[in-house]
Write a protein that binds this DNA or RNA. Sequence first.
DNA 1: TTGTAAGCGTTATCAC
DNA 2: GTGATAACGCTTACAA
Lengths: 329, 329
Amino acid sequence: MAEILNLSTSTVSKSLLGHSDIGESTKNRVLELAKKMNYQPNLFGKGLRTQKTMSIGVIIPDITVHYSSLILKGIIESAKGVGYRVIISESGHHHQDEKDAINTLINSNVDGILLSIARESHDIEHILEASNFIPIVLFDKVSSKIPLTKIIDDDEFGAETAVQHLIAQGRRKIVLIREKCKTSNSENRYRGYARALSSAGLTVDDVLVRECDSMSIEDGFAVTEALIAEKIEFDGLFGATDNVAIGAIQAMKKNGITIPRDVSVIGFSNSKNSTIIEPSLSTMEQPGFNIGKYAVKYLLEEISEDSDISTNRTIELKTKLIVRDSSPI
Amino acid sequence: MAEILNLSTSTVSKSLLGHSDIGESTKNRVLELAKKMNYQPNLFGKGLRTQKTMSIGVIIPDITVHYSSLILKGIIESAKGVGYRVIISESGHHHQDEKDAINTLINSNVDGILLSIARESHDIEHILEASNFIPIVLFDKVSSKIPLTKIIDDDEFGAETAVQHLIAQGRRKIVLIREKCKTSNSENRYRGYARALSSAGLTVDDVLVRECDSMSIEDGFAVTEALIAEKIEFDGLFGATDNVAIGAIQAMKKNGITIPRDVSVIGFSNSKNSTIIEPSLSTMEQPGFNIGKYAVKYLLEEISEDSDISTNRTIELKTKLIVRDSSPI
DNA sequence: TTGTAAGCGTTATCAC
DNA sequence: GTGATAACGCTTACAA
């Protein structure tokens, strides 16, 4: 490009970057040719100089979870809007894979990392360590023990809203199906559940709080069958994910319990599934797309600040009550 | 690294790359230190020299479609296995966005592109053009008009199997709900439908072949309601996607048609939804993960071949009949 | 067997 | 206002 115009590469570079010390006319000549030949600067050369790649890395446990893909959509779209590329890796909920992914991404010279923590990652040393080298923002599955920016939905308030909704229907013996692993999601939803009960003058009955490993439909089914087999009485059920709530509905139907007449049910997520199960499942809609959007926004902020101080803040996005047939008003 | 060992950078580089002309002892000294300090070569430097990035780009219409995310899982996993990074972009089914994504990826110096074509992309010039510069492999949503490697599932045979299954149950008036847009998926499934009928001595009755735009649950519902309103008689229904089949089931249930007594139903995809609808939906399982895996495999092959000849071949992966309650044997 | 030096494309510094 | 030059980290002829 420089040769064609008989200019030095430095003049061309400065024109392209809009430096002030270039004459209008030459600058325009350069910009015109650049446009005509659809000139794109070589990213290797650029990266080698500036140590910036205009790319961010994303690590999630499982890309096939619908909610995760919704967040990814937000991430990809926002990143595209500001000219960033998105490199995606999966941890499969494994600690070691998460560690490897972080290293690979750092090695790829991404400018920052968006991380949704693996279930297995109790040990968080690797994240703290990495955050010394590169901006990291956590989203969805986070840990309060890590002093970084976290983008999540308001799990506690969402859970409280869900349970209040059941209480408003006169339900008093409300089951909670939660995750056994004490993730922040799980803890916060439990807190919301407890707070809704106590606000209504009820107390948490431990026998109604059931735990399961993977929060799958099958898990929800099994837990609920056990509950019924133990002849525990209940008239409401809050599944901390749509999946377990759906499994619970299937188990209750199988055992002759009518929903919502005998038991009101609500889930959490607003997955597509929740509209297909019969009766259709009331749920709390999670703002997946926006979580992705904000995650990118705050990460870019930290990338450009270029400060060594990692900010410890939590951004909570609102969930929304969606009432369907499993808990009519 | 070179200074520490009092060696030249070239000696170090050669040791790392395993060149034959380096003494065993020095080579080992280098490799040991590399391991100890967890040395990772700078990708910019490397890329600037070799013009390879060890990264591939993926373009899909919509990441939130479960089947797409399953393919992505296969892509990400295979790529990781061979040290490749994956950059993902979405076209949103828009022609222009697809074009932009291709350009951005080429400009990012990815070594190759995996592309699932947008519904809107009738014009395929941009793909042909791009394939002159960079290896491209198509997957899932492909076009027979493009002479490149294509990885798809065996739609025609799958559809034939699905319809044969209905015929085996004595069904004769079999509805097909297909995509209006004549994508290769849609055409192939139609062909399979027609072939199954003719093998059984039946003919395609155009009034039983219905089309819809987006193949959503809502579309399937609407199309089926119309069918019922027109008082068309039918005893079997093949939805070219699970979603339309689910919508169809909902419409039939609403109109007092009992499944499978009155109508046998089968879908295509084996989405999670198909197990939640009642009755549970028979379907053809698509090999999403493997499509991703093979897409990477063939792309890497074309990258390393480094030949200018773009291969025109189609790899078809087998689908599998899954029988559930909507069409018991 | 090891080292030297050039060059990949870009930008920042400094001289003209 | 413009250009020469060095530097980023790596690989590879070629020289030693």
